[in-house]
Nucleic acid binder design. Structure first.
Length: 678
DNA sequence: GAGCACTGC
């Protein structure tokens, strides 16, 4: 897991010196392997795996479980006859780096016996018997191999993170394990909830492996903090002045907060001047450009102290060496999903005790550390949840439902979820899939639905792509779908260059709506730059988002054959493209005094100020998503003609519903009168 | 006139 990587690579040596170096190299690997906490458990572990089909492994960070256990299994003969050992990770980087490490330990070329498989990148071959992959990737593999027949062992690693994909895998794997008696399943988790995993998997035994970490002292505040940002700044300076050397990690909830905190720290340090030692203040969050992110890994110069102000990205995704002090205000931004309204929101909430403990652990990686919690011990005990609500209960499940349906699981309401999602979430997902024509009235997958399931995008987007066939504009629709499935904003808008950024954005605006703008951006970037960072920077476009859009588009285009859609261009006929976007008819809104009303749920919503249609306020709109922030906003909207709805979704809309001034509940004339009065 | 934690297929 978090072992420092070996820097050198084994090479074929000819001279005596070379062979000496190679010997010491492998000796160092063996010494390292044997010093890992998991090593003494090898025999007992293999015996337990032999005796039980499903085993829960409780192993803390640094135990070596992720790199060593698959190798033990391999040496024990679990890959005989070309069978594979699969090990899932929640993150791409982990799948890549762990497999590279294991390949090195086994002295094989990455991609041969040991490989990894992540989206956009398959580094495996026919020889691969030890395969690390993202959990989402294994989920997709179910589509081609529903019983995972080529695997003898599946290891679900980092199970405690409870990602959406991991949770679905739990149900599916538990199911196939029943009839595949030769399949071994290992569920590896940190010390958390292992009893729950055990009881879910029919009381599978729990095998415990200790970790290797330094102690972290935890300090609470005596009284609650009214202003946690100010409290952070004060705490950092206090540590800086009174505590021995060691870098500081501060957990905040988002970009804005992080920027504010960094500015405050810098200002106070300036004021204190030479009275204090140098304090290097560095922000880190996922959307920060890579070159600025990289700065946090620079070693701290002697005499100075580094303070990293981070989002949750520093909780699991990246580890920073040299952190001795952690400051934890106890909050994080969390996505939630309201299935009654179909609306997402991102809200600052108190984090869970599990999350707080994970944060504290970041102080104990290199030496004994200290964690300062900016809340009371009482709050920790009584006001915080034990664990974070699993993602499956906080998200739209359209995609998941479509996938499960295509795996032949018809009764989703009774699917064996470890923690079932809200009933309404499943119902809304089924309803939307039915509306899109992916399911028939019996809830069975249609031919269209089967094709939709092949595409790794939101069902509404896959429907749009399939509908583009009929209108002969799949080239453009593929681009729009790819751009929409990039969650991040495509436009870069730094605080100090707001005017420039807004002007740059205006240059990309074309009529029709945000979908058409996105299509235009993609085309311009492709023509203007060949995706150079420089060009994107000058035009206030997020390079990383564009790169991702290109990857997604290429993947989708590669799947067109499989779903039998011809790739062809609308040749400038934008009307076609806008009509296809009407595939989103479930997300129709109509102008209504001051804002918009969704057609199906009569909800009041507003065009997002960042939209190209913010000032135009067309009568009919289709929105890509509904997000609650300060208001109910439609993000990414396109202007449509209401008659298109009847053309695209006659099964869904009755013409009466679409009459311009009608209000569903009252006769037409009254509705009109009311509107005029209003 | 707002402001997007983090992942993943």
């Amino acid at each position: 897991e978090e072992e420092p990587g070996l820097q050198t690579h084994p090479e074929e040596g000819r001279s005596g010196v070379h062979s000496y170096l190679i010997k010491t190299f492998y000796l160092s690997i063996i010494i390292n392997q044997r010093s890992l906490p998991v090593f003494p458990y090898r025999q007992d572990l293999l015996a337990a795996i032999d005796q039980h089909q499903i085993l829960v492994i409780e192993g803390e960070t640094g135990s070596g479980k992720t790199t060593q256990i698959p190798q033990y299994l391999l040496e024990e003969g679990y890959t005989a006859g070309g069978m594979k050992i699969g090990c899932t990770q929640p993150r791409r980087v982990a799948a890549m780096s762990v497999s590279a490490r294991v390949a090195q330990e086994m002295a094989v070329k990455l991609g041969n016996e040991v490989g990894y498989s992540i989206r956009f990148e398959d580094c495996t071959s026919e020889r691969t018997v030890l395969k690390y992959m993202t959990d989402g990737m294994l989920l997709r593999e179910f589509l081609t191999e529903p019983d995972l027949a080529s695997y003898s062992v599946i290891i679900i690693d980092e199970a405690h993170e409870r990602t959406l994909h991991t949770d679905i895998l739990f149900g599916l794997i538990k199911d196939i394990a029943r009839f595949r008696s030769n399949l071994k399943v290992l569920v590896a988790s940190a010390t958390l909830d292992t009893e729950r995993f055990s009881s879910f998997f029919d009381d599978a035994p729990v095998f415990r492996i200790p970790g290797r970490r330094f102690p972290v002292d935890i300090y609470y505040t005596k009284a609650p903090e009214a202003d946690y940002l100010e409290a952070c700044v004060v705490s950092v300076l206090q540590i800086h002045v009174t505590q021995p050397p060691g870098d500081i990690l501060v957990f905040l909830t988002g970009q804005e907060e992080i920027e504010a905190c960094c500015e405050l720290l810098q200002e106070r340090c300036r004021r204190l001047g030479s009275k204090i030692a140098e304090l290097i203040v560095l922000p880190i969050y996922a959307n920060l450009p890579s070159d600025m992110q990289a700065k946090i890994f620079n070693p701290t110069p002697p005499g100075a102290r580094k303070v990293v102000v981070a989002t949750n990205i520093a909780e699991t995704s990246l580890t920073i060496d040299g952190i001795i002090y952690v400051i934890d205000p106890g909050f994080c931004k969390q996505k939630s999903y309201n299935a009654r309204t179909g609306m997402e929101s991102l809200i600052v909430t108190p984090c869970s005790r599990a999350s707080a403990n994970q944060r504290a652990g970041r102080a104990g990686r290199v030496a004994a550390g200290k964690c300062f919690r900016l809340y009371t011990a009482w709050a920790f005990k009584h006001e915080m949840e034990e664990t974070t609500v699993p993602e499956i209960q906080r998200t739209n499940l359209g995609n998941v439902v479509l996938l499960l349906k295509s795996l032949g699981i018809n009764d989703l309401i009774h699917f064996d979820f470890m923690d079932p999602p809200p009933h309404e979430t499943l119902v809304l997902a089924l309803e939307q899939l039915y509306a899109l024509g992916a399911l028939n009235h019996l809830g069975e997958l249609t031919k269209l639905g089967r094709r939709m399931a092949e595409l790794p995008v939101d069902p509404m987007l896959s429907k749009m792509i399939l509908a583009s066939e009929q209108y002969k504009c799949s080239e453009e629709v593929l681009t729009i779908a790819a751009m929409l499935s990039v969650n991040n904003s495509i436009f870069y808008r730094p605080k100090d260059k707001v005017v420039h950024a807004d002007n740059a954005r205006m240059n990309f605006v074309v009529p029709g709506g945000d979908h058409m703008v996105l299509l235009n951006v993609y085309t311009q970037v492709r023509m203007g730059s060949g995706y150079s960072t420089q060009w994107c920077y000058e035009n206030f476009i997020q390079f990383r988002s564009m790169k991702r859009a290109r990857d997604v588009r290429e993947q989708l285009e590669g799947l067109m054959d499989r779903i039998e859609v011809e790739v062809c261009s609308a040749d400038g006929d934008n009307m076609k493209i806008r009509k296809v976007s009407t595939g989103y008819f479930y997300h129709t809104a109509r102008l209504s005094k001051g804002g918009y009303k969704t057609v199906k749920h009569q909800q009041t919503v507003y065009v997002h100020p960042n939209s190209s249609l913010f000032e135009e306020q067309p009568r009919w709109l289709i929105y890509h998503e509904l997000v609650f922030t300060t208001k109910e906003f439609m993000r990414q909207v396109i202007e449509i003609d209401s008659s298109w709805l009847l053309e695209v979704a006659p099964h869904y809309y009755k013409s009466k519903e679409l009459e311009d001034s009608s209000s569903k509940k009252m006769p037409r004339k009254m509705g009109k009168a009311r509107e005029e009065l209003g």
